[in-house]
C-alpha cells in the first residue's frame, strides 16, 4: 500500500521478480538468436529481432494469462501474481520492439505514411489466408499500450477500480488478436507443425486453467443460503477458520465473513485496489489483508486503517446458536458494524 505515487515502489520481492523477468528474457533471446545463427546463419539482425521479441511477447502473454487462474487454484502461487503488472509492462515492451521493427522494416522509407500503409498495403480483408494480419497485431499493440500506460496505481485510483479493471480485461481481446496475427501471418509462411503445436498447447493451457478456476468459483457461488425473515443462513460458526473467511454469494454479490479474536465481521469481497478476493485473505495485525497486494481493511467498518482511504461495504450478522445469519442488504462503504461476539 502507498500514500503517494512513485514511479515504482520498490521492495526486494519486486527487484527479485524483475531480475527473473529480465534474466529469462535475455536467456530466451540469446538462445533463439544463438541457435538460429548456428543452424541458419544467413539470417539478418532485423529478422532475429522481429522474430525473437515477437515470440518472447507471446510467451510472456501466456504466462500473464495463466497467473490469475493458477493462483485461484493454488494460492501458493500468489507471490507471482503480486508483481504481474511488471510482467505486463515487460511484455508490452517486447511486443513494441517486435511491432516497431516490423513497421519500420516493412512499411517505412516508402511512398506512404507507415501507419497508413499497415492498413492499405494488403487489401485482402475478405480472404482468410491472405488476410492483412499486421492490422491485427497493430490493434493488439494499441491495447497493450493502453494497458501498460495505465499500469500504475495513479491511474487505478483516478480511473476508478472498475474502469481500470475493464480496461485491463481487454488483455483477452489482445490475446485473440495476437493469436490470429500469428496464425494468419507467420504460420502461413513458417509452417512447422512443432511451432503450431507449441502455440496450440499454450492456448489449451490458458483455456483449461480458466475453466478450472471458473468451475471452482461457480461451485462456491452455488452454496445455497436459506432465507428466514430477511436473513440468510450461511454456515455454522465452526466452518470458518480463525483469522480467515468464508465467501458467500448473496443477491449476486460476493460477501466475505471473517472470524477473528472470537468475533465475526462481514464485508464486500472485492478489494478496492485491483478487485482481489478479500475473502481469500487473512487477518493480520487486526486487519483483513488482501491476498493479491496486501491492501488492508478493518473488519468492523471495511475501512483501510488511517491514513489510507479505501472503503468497502459492510454487512450485519447474527448468530442463532452456532449458526451464522447475514442480512444481504449492504451498508454504505465504510459503515461501522459492531463485530458479532461468538458466544459458546
Amino acid at each position: 500500500m502507498g500514500l503517494e505515487y512513485k514511479f515504482v515502489l520498490w521492495n526486494r520481492y519486486k527487484k527479485k521478480y524483475d531480475l527473473v523477468i529480465a534474466g529469462f528474457s535475455i536467456i530466451f533471446l540469446l538462445l533463439f538468436a544463438g541457435i538460429t545463427l548456428i543452424v541458419n546463419r544467413e539470417t539478418t539482425v532485423e529478422t532475429l529481432v522481429i522474430r525473437g521479441f515477437g515470440i518472447l511477447a507471446v510467451v510472456m502473454l501466456h504466462l500473464i494469462l495463466v497467473i490469475g487462474p493458477l493462483c485461484r487454484l493454488q494460492p501458493k502461487f500468489l507471490p507471482i501474481l503480486y508483481n504481474r503488472r511488471h510482467l505486463g509492462v515487460s511484455m508490452f515492451l517486447a511486443a513494441l520492439v517486435h511491432g516497431g521493427f516490423s513497421i519500420f522494416q516493412f512499411h517505412a522509407l516508402g511512398d506512404t505514411f507507415p501507419i497508413y500503409s499497415i492498413f492499405t498495403s494488403n487489401l485482402d480483408y475478405f480472404s482468410l489466408s491472405n488476410f492483412p494480419f499486421q492490422v491485427l497485431g497493430f490493434f493488439a499493440l494499441l491495447i497493450l499500450f493502453s494497458m501498460a500506460a495505465t499500469s500504475h496505481d495513479f491511474f487505478l485510483a483516478n480511473l476508478s477500480a472498475v474502469t481500470w479493471k475493464r480496461l485491463h480485461m481487454m488483455v483477452y481481446v489482445a490475446y485473440v488478436l495476437i493469436l490470429l496475427h500469428v496464425v494468419l501471418g507467420a504460420f502461413q509462411q513458417e509452417t512447422s507443425l512443432f511451432t503450431i503445436i507449441v502455440l496450440g498447447l499454450g492456448f489449451v493451457l490458458v483455456v483449461l486453467l480458466h475453466l478450472l478456476s471458473a468451475r471452482q468459483e461457480l461451485r462456491a457461488d452455488k452454496i445455497q443460503s436459506v432465507e428466514t425473515e430477511g436473513w440468510f443462513r450461511v454456515c455454522e460458526v465452526d466452518e470458518i477458520e480463525d483469522d480467515r473467511a468464508k465467501i458467500f454469494t448473496l443477491n449476486k454479490e460476493r460477501v466475505a465473513i471473517f472470524k477473528y479474536e472470537n468475533k465475526l465481521s462481514a464485508i464486500h469481497n472485492v478489494c478496492k485496489h485491483q478487485g482481489g478476493p478479500l475473502g481469500e485473505g487473512k487477518i493480520i495485525d487486526g486487519c483483513i489483508t488482501c491476498p493479491w497486494h496486501g491492501y488492508q481493511y478493518l473488519p468492523k467498518n471495511g475501512q483501510s486503517p488511517p491514513p489510507y482511504t479505501e472503503k468497502v461495504a459492510t454487512y450485519d450478522l447474527k448468530l442463532v446458536g452456532s449458526t451464522v445469519f447475514i442480512d444481504p442488504n449492504a451498508h454504505a462503504e465504510g459503515t461501522e458494524v459492531e463485530p458479532l461476539i461468538i458466544t459458546k
Binding site: A33, I35, V39, I55, F194, T195, V198
Partner: peptide, 10 residues
C-alpha cells in the same frame, strides 16, 4: 520454446 522456434525456421 526457443529451441523449437529457432530450429524449425525455414
Amino acid at each position: 520454446i526457443a529451441g523449437v522456434f529457432a530450429f524449425t525456421q525455414k
